[in-house]
Design a protein around this nucleic acid. Structure first.
Lengths: 383, 383
DNA sequence: CAGGCTTTGTTGTACTATTGAACAAAATAT
DNA sequence: ATATTTTGTTCAATAGTACAACAAAGCCTG
């Protein structure tokens, strides 16, 4: 379509394309035989044999035991080599998780620690987990390190992370130098999008929006299977979309932004506005109060939920995604939020359209960590 | 990335890819020599010769006169064959334009007629222009018919076009059968996006949003060079995004949608609310009144402009496009709208981001018609 | 238990495409 | 007139897939 990035095709692009197809088929349907690969891909069995031979030689694929069939020669099962592993790091304002995962996104090891105030301490903490992890991986091949961040980055530097309250800091260099591994970064919401596209079960939607709700609201947008990054990597700031011209001022300087009405902070404001409240109240406290029977707390959360659903109309109308994934502390109280948001979405459907699937992401950060795995692997698995 | 649509690569994909690269290079840089094509594409001169030979044999490309160089053998100039033509149709509530264009998007012939109330009459009208057009094209090859519509379509049927007030009607079959040509449809805003991507000069942005302003507001969204279509082809309905929970009811059933504040209809309402107004006032009248010195008319338009700019924040924050293109009657009074919208956009830029370029599309419908040309050609020019 | 049938995986030939080098063509500079 | 430069073509080498034949490995049947 565009001649902007000219990428001429040598005679081996066909191999690259087909290799990626075969690798993805093995990933999603393993264990699978060569004959089944041929049927699923449309390629000839002979071509599949050659490609598989190459993948086995490169240690991406292993031959398993032979399977049984009603009759005929027994097929040999192929699967991904689980000894190719990826280190995933999920940095959140509250805690930092580090995990070792195989190419299937299965976690081999996982640990976490509270996020330090100082980014240098955070780097040291991450390295203190990664270093022994690398030691324990003798015999395995570490593909790289993927890092999920609650903010915007540029060339390995964290340039905008209001919730972390870290300064502009170079994360890539110290980690890359200490480990000798490649380090890839991705916004947390975008990482979730990648996870949905890679490990999202049978669906594997190509139009997904991930909404992260915490102090503010962010979003990851996937259109036609590709992440929307936009000018200056700034796409996805749906939190700063205006939904009420008379609303309170937002930290961004504008008035009535969505995140002023639908973030964790908003729920706390609703609670305070409805009566007395302790000074250091956290969103976590609010959830506990509501579960304990505090009607004012429940009402505050309900308002937040309604505003969340209301604002999602912006995304539904504008982008019509197949799926909206919600991340954040609120997923721990999904019994409260889910029905309200769902009802708002249903009431908003335009004639001719249909509501997207609404799902909470697992609160343990699995989605984000899986996204880092996809981030590291994507250059091998896509042409 | 996704294994959803498996498209195995035969040995000739390389040719398809390179053919599209060469064709696009000729299109954008014509006249151009084989040697320059080789330098620009990174392919070998020998490969270029083979591909060009094929393109000449298929009558896509013509050899022109030889050029002069400081020294050395004179290169032969190549250009697209202008005798490959496309018929473009732009259906608007007010009028229907039909044009004959060459592969470069240059119009050979163009005519228009008022849009009839009855879609069957419209089809007859379109055919009465197309038929003699086809007759006049002896010796030329007509690639197909592209149709731009103010609404949503599905399989050649117009399923949602509130401003046209046409019922669900099959446009493809009668036109295809009467002409024997392929007919392709596209939403007007999307057609504009395609035009921007194809004929958008040096820029050729890959992240563009087109906003159509008339009775309502629609949008075409291009992300990473691809049109965002979304679930059920419904992406782009930014007109029905909520921007004021206390605003007037919208025809969609919701409250405070953007188009209630920023469409042509909104400006008329502002005018009526500010004092006396004739019953049958049109947006066109309003523009004339404002130009004639009517302060209330000017104020109404100014309110509309501010609301337009205000709502665009949704698009800027969420998608961060490189360019926002505005279509509609308001472009005829861009001296009124442009500065106000621009100022709103500038005031909204988030830290770290930058404002998109804001441009009005030519009001004569050139952008939409050019989009239909791109629509018809895209299968030949993209791999 | 041998032969037939079925399915898997491999081997070999044919075809297509690109590369890179050599070469012919055409014009200018010396 | 000759050397130089640049364009465009030709040809062998290389890489990749398709297609068909074939070997391998099992089950079923008489």
């Amino acid at each position: 379509m565009s001649t902007h990035t000219i990428q001429p095709a040598a005679s081996d692009v066909a191999r690259e394309i087909n290799r990626a197809i075969v690798l993805n088929l093995i990933r999603t349907r393993q264990p699978i035989s060569r004959a089944d690969l041929a049927r699923a891909s449309g390629l000839q069995r002979s071509t599949i044999s050659l490609i598989v031979e190459q993948l086995v030689a490169e240690h991406w694929v292993l031959e398993g035991p032979t399977a049984r069939l009603p009759r005929g020669r027994r097929p040999t099962h192929l699967r991904l080599n689980e000894d190719r592993v990826i280190i995933g790091v999920d940095i959140r304002p509250g805690q930092i998780s580090v995990a070792l995962a195989d190419v299937n996104g299965e976690f081999i090891h996982q640990s976490a620690f509270p996020t330090p105030r100082d980014p240098q301490a955070a780097i040291a903490g991450i390295l203190s987990i990664i270093q022994p992890m690398i030691q324990s991986c003798s015999g395995k091949k570490i593909e790289g390190i993927g890092i999920s961040l609650p903010g915007r980055f540029n060339a390995g530097r964290l340039v905008f992370a209001p919730n972390l309250k870290w300064p502009d800091v170079d994360l890539r260099t110290p980690i890359a130098e200490a480990t000798g591994l490649e380090v890839a970064f991705e916004n947390a919401a975008n990482a979730c999008c990648l996870a949905a596209a890679w490990f999202g079960g049978a669906g594997q939607e190509r139009n997904v929006v991930v909404i992260t709700v915490s102090e503010g609201i962010g979003a990851g947008v996937m259109v036609n299977g590709q992440l929307a990054r936009g000018l200056g990597n700034m796409a996805g700031e749906f939190g700063h979309v205006p939904i009420d011209p008379n609303g309170p001022l937002c930290s961004c300087g504008s008035r009535g932004c969505w995140e002023v009405f639908a973030s964790n902070r908003a729920a706390l404001r609703y609670y305070r506005e409805s009566g007395k409240a302790p000074d250091n109240l956290t969103f976590h406290n609010l959830l506990e109060l509501a579960d304990g029977g505090d009607c004012r707390a429940a009402a505050a959360l309900e308002s937040m939920a309604r505003q969340l659903g209301h604002g999602m109309r912006i995304i539904v109308a504008g982008l019509a995604p197949e799926r909206i994934i919600v991340i954040g502390d609120l997923t721990r109280a999904w019994h409260r939020f889910g029905p309200i948001i769902e009802a708002e979405l249903q009431s908003q459907v335009l004639s001719g359209g249909s509501a997207p699937a609404l799902v909470p992401a697992d609160e343990d950060g699995t989605a984000r960590l899986r996204g880092t795995v996809a981030l590291v692997l994507q250059k091998h698995f896509s042409r």
